[in-house]
């Protein structure tokens, strides 16, 4: 019996793989909330607004500083791949930065570690220059893929920053151990730095070295905040309601656990 095929697990509710039911319904509920609130916002009904996020408010100031000084703006999207949520959340910010830089003829240098991300960033920046009516100002050499290696990329960015001395350094995306290397180099060079990542191990480094830092999920709200698109704002409202529901469930779970009545609750979510 040593070579017997592994037994097929029993499906939950007839179709779901064991252990995936709660996750699926969580995503389904969030999708439903997003649909309801984006429709509500789309039809002109009132949805709550997003509180002020200083890091995103200061993007214009940072680009303005580079324009006045006649220096470049550097934008790093981090080391994550195309499927990483931080990378996806960074693209709308990049689009906004590229449009603003194109409008004021400020040089924008964008650096990448992942070559698929590089392709998307190149297209976003190109489109941004076309959108403001300055396609001739777009320079393909300013959108750079340096290296697939984490440290190769970091070293190349350090080299670029020390040679060209940009006045503004944006870092939005997925960052790991290279965070401090990039951010401290910018701080030493006197760059105005705005950063955002959801890697909680790296956020303290950004807080210590940058002028403004987007903490955790603030990065995911950036798209809605910048575009002020009511449909996207509706999605942020939906995600906040979901968080409140999770907090409520955590609280109820805590109470049940305190009074040792949590067994049936555990069984419910173990399915």
């Amino acid at each position: 019996m040593l070579f017997a095929a592994p037994a097929t697990p029993m499906p939950v509710l007839g179709i779901f793989y064991p252990g995936e039911t709660a996750g699926f319904f969580l995503i389904f509920m969030l999708g439903l909330l997003i649909y309801v609130f984006s429709r509500r916002a789309g039809t002109g009904k009132r949805v709550p607004s997003i509180r002020k996020i200083p890091g995103l408010e200061s993007i214009d100031e940072a680009i303005g500083r580079a324009t006045e000084m006649g220096k470049a703006v550097h934008y790093s999207i981090g080391i994550g791949g195309v499927t990483h949520a931080d990378t996806i959340a960074s693209w709308p910010i990049l689009e906004y930065v590229a449009r603003t830089c194109a409008k004021y003829d400020t040089k924008l240098v964008q650096t990448n570690r992942n070559y698929l991300v590089y392709g998307v960033c190149d297209e976003i920046i190109k489109q941004a220059y076309v959108a403001v009516g300055k396609p001739e100002s777009y320079n393909p050499n300013d959108v750079r893929w340096y290296s697939d290696s984490q440290w190769g990329y970091s070293t190349a960015v350090l080299g670029y920053m020390n040679r060209d001395k940009p006045s503004t350094n944006f870092m939005f995306g997925s960052f790991a151990a290279e965070t401090l290397l990039l951010a401290e180099a910018g701080a030493v060079l006197g760059c105005m730095q705005i950063a955002g990542t959801t890697n909680i191990l790296q956020i303290p480094f950004f807080v210590a070295t940058c002028d403004y830092t987007l903490l955790g999920e603030e990065l995911y709200a950036a798209s809605a905040y910048i575009s002020k698109d009511p449909v996207l704002v509706g999605t942020v409202v939906a995600q906040d309601i979901m968080k409140m529901l999770i907090a409520a469930v955590t609280l109820v779970g805590g109470i049940f656990a305190t009074f040792k009545a949590d067994k049936w609750l555990k069984n419910l979510f173990a399915k």
Binding site: L30, W91, P92, E95, T198, G216, Y220, A221, T235
Partner: peptide
Amino acid sequence: LQICIRVGSFAVALRVLLALERAH
């Protein structure tokens, strides 16, 4: 922070799935 980030990343994924996020 982790809970908020996970919910946020689900929301980003769903925005892409529902074609509400189209910067890319």
